[in-house]
């Protein structure tokens, strides 16, 4: 049994997928959000009455997790399989198998690479004196070009490939894209550091002691990694408090 889904149902599922993290929770993570996004499709396939739809909805309330931009890959594939009348156990196994890669591929590509890259580009522009609206426009347009394309591509890839979506994901080589973009992000990071050190109102103008302190802080982050973030933030706040107190006394 294979049934086609009306455009309205497909569009509705996609739009709902934008809010798939709306009821994020530690028990089922995106489980309830996944069922919420799938609901228009399930209503169309199984009928709207509560006793008809109860079992299919319950199947999709289970634990699910993914990067939000790639969750649509799973959603599309599951919609396809539900429309094809696939075995529920197989659908469940697809969701179990795909959540790991959709999380790790998306985290590496988006959170660890594209987002910092675009933010660095916008920060460098801002530091060089670009007007605020230019900075914000560049950031939002560049970032969301990647974001929106990825969402639409993923959802459609899932809808088309169904169970075989793993092959499509492997072919798209998201990990390869991450590796290729990473050096560009490093270049942008270097550019921002260069602009902040050498530019007008930069650290060179502030004086050698400030420059030295900043260099030390950079090395602490470089060799200490993420565990240095919180102490650094706490120290910053404490330092600001201390300078304020000293300033108040003199």
């Amino acid at each position: 049994m294979s049934r086609s889904l009306p455009t309205g149902v497909v569009v509705s599922a996609f739009v709902r997928s934008l809010a798939i993290q709306g009821s994020w929770n530690y028990r089922t993570m995106l489980g309830s959000g996944f069922a919420f996004a799938l609901l228009p499709g399930l209503r169309h396939l199984y009928g709207g009455a509560s006793d008809e739809i109860r079992v299919p909805v319950e199947r999709h309330l289970e634990h699910f997790n993914a990067h939000p931009y790639l969750a649509g890959v799973a959603l599309g594939a599951v919609l396809r399989l539900e429309a094809d009348g696939a075995d529920p156990e197989m659908v469940r196994r697809l969701k179990l198998a795909i959540r790991g890669p959709l999380g790790s591929l998306g985290d590496a590509l988006i959170w660890a690479t594209v987002l910092p890259g675009v933010a660095l580009a916008a920060l460098t522009l801002a530091w060089l004196g670009a007007p605020a609206w230019v900075v914000v426009t560049v950031f939002l347009v560049l970032y969301n070009a990647v974001h929106v394309v990825l969402r639409i591509w993923g959802f459609r890839a899932g809808m088309r490939a169904g169970r075989e979506v793993g092959r499509v994901l492997a072919g798209a080589d998201l990990a390869g894209w991450t590796r290729r973009i990473e050096p560009v992000v490093v270049l942008l990071l270097g550019a921002l550091v260069g602009a902040v050190v050498g530019g007008a109102g930069g650290l060179v103008e502030a004086g050698a002691p400030w420059l030295a302190l900043t260099a030390v802080a950079f090395l602490v982050g470089l060799f200490g990694g993420h565990r240095t973030w919180r102490p650094a933030a706490v120290l910053t706040v404490v330092a600001i408090g201390a300078v304020t107190l000293i300033g108040g006394l003199t």
Binding site: T113, T214, G221, G224, T228, W229, A233, L235, V243
Partner: peptide, 26 residues
């Protein structure tokens, strides 16, 4: 007590830690 340039420099010290962490991540 600090002027604009020194104030910015002070805030950049903390920010530099994040820049270092990012290079480590990359």
């Amino acid at each position: 007590p600090l002027d604009g340039s020194a104030s910015m420099a002070l805030l950049l010290i903390g920010g530099a830690v994040s820049a270092g962490i990012l290079l480590n991540d990359l």
